[in-house]
């Protein structure tokens, strides 16, 4: 079949909501886009462990510590689901991990901001996981089967993450004046970076249009961002905290909140590697890779030894 016919057949399948599976024919650009997106998503889960891992040893109670530990373990798991989805497209896991560690791959910029106080762990769970869930709920219906299935699993697990974050914020907001101040400070620092998580505005987004056509994405960056603002504002009001945006107002005509302009200069700066923690994150990733090398070597050596012992036994 000619490649034009194949592409038409492929698009028909997508239009008819038939999922694309690993061995199906797909345009090279679809495969490449997915490998890029899924691996970036996986990297984000892996790097996302770092800002939160920072607080495991300093969590204020055993209950908080157990929850945070479980959350960080989940993030590792989510990274693994996603790497294995990327591999169904022909990517090699070790290449993907090298790309991350060598700074060739992107991951969500939000993780290049530091977690300065315990309240940041609350704000990250509430806002960062909240924003991620919004995006991931949409991706549960993405056109590529293995990616969609990974997302369903991830979304089920993420809702505890957001709830534990909001619970931390709630406790602080209802605590002493100083604790409430901590919660407000965390909200002040995490609000705008959370809005940036949805990516550039639709007019500026380079991959969006084709991704929508292929139904990799089903909602635009701006649509998701609006949805996030609309559900988060009442949650902030319940905490009696103030969202750091003077332009934030309910627009009765649109039935949505209007909000201020995002600092896109900051956004691009962090994307390009000049955020507060970019270097530190990659350094931590490389250290984890290097310090874990002996464990991987030992496991391989053990397997080889066992196999040769079996051969001797058989002989």
């Amino acid at each position: 079949m000619k490649s034009f016919d194949l592409e038409k057949k492929f698009q028909d399948r997508v239009d008819n909501e038939v999922k694309i599976e690993p061995k199906d024919w797909m345009p090279e650009a679809y495969r490449k886009t997915l490998i890029r997106q899924i691996s970036q998503h996986a990297h984000s889960e892996i790097v996302g462990m770092l800002p939160e891992g920072n607080w495991i040893t300093r969590a204020p109670s055993l209950r908080r510590k157990a929850a945070l530990l479980a959350k960080v373990q989940d993030e590792a798991g989510h990274g693994l689901y996603l790497y294995s989805a990327a591999e169904t497209l022909g990517a090699e896991r070790s290449d993907l991990i090298d790309d991350l560690n060598e700074g060739r791959a992107k991951y969500s910029s939000i993780f290049n901001y530091p977690t300065l106080t315990w309240a940041d762990i609350g704000a990250v769970g509430w806002l960062v996981d909240g924003a991620a869930i919004m995006n991931q709920v949409m991706l549960c219906r993405t056109s590529y089967g293995p990616y969609a299935r990974a997302m369903v699993r991830i979304c089920k697990e993420e809702s505890f993450h957001q709830r534990q974050g909001y619970e931390i914020m709630l406790k602080l907001a209802q605590g002493s004046a100083e604790q409430k101040e901590m919660a407000q400070d965390a909200l002040n620092r995490w609000w705008w970076p959370s809005l940036m998580m949805f990516g550039p505005s639709d007019a500026e987004s380079t991959h969006s249009e084709q991704s929508m056509k292929w139904k990799i994405k089903r909602k635009s960056n701006d649509e998701l961002r609006q949805q996030f603002v609309d559900i988060t504002v009442p949650q902030a009001e319940f905490l009696d905290l103030t969202i750091p945006d003077e332009d934030l107002t309910w627009n009765a005509d649109r039935q949505h909140y209007d909000f201020g302009e995002i600092n896109w200069e900051e956004f691009w700066q962090v994307v390009k590697g000049e955020g507060i923690c970019n270097r530190e994150r990659l350094k931590a990733r490389r250290a984890a890779e290097e310090n874990g090398a002996w464990v991987r070597e030992a496991a391989t050596a053990y397997e080889q030894k066992r196999r040769s012992a079996e051969h001797i036994h058989v002989a």
Binding site: L80, Y81, S84, A85, E87, T88, E92, R93, S94, I97, R149, A150, E289, A293, R296, A299, T300, Y302, E303, R306
Partner: peptide, 30 residues
């Protein structure tokens, strides 16, 4: 790092049900 072999994972969620494909992972041995 050279990748360890890839394994497909099948899980029985409760007795009486089939094992069902859950995903994959890398590991040096079974």
């Amino acid at each position: 790092m050279k990748d360890w072999p890839l394994w497909e994972v099948f899980i029985r969620s409760s007795n009486g049900l089939h094992h069902k494909h859950a995903g994959s992972l890398h590991a040096p041995d079974n």
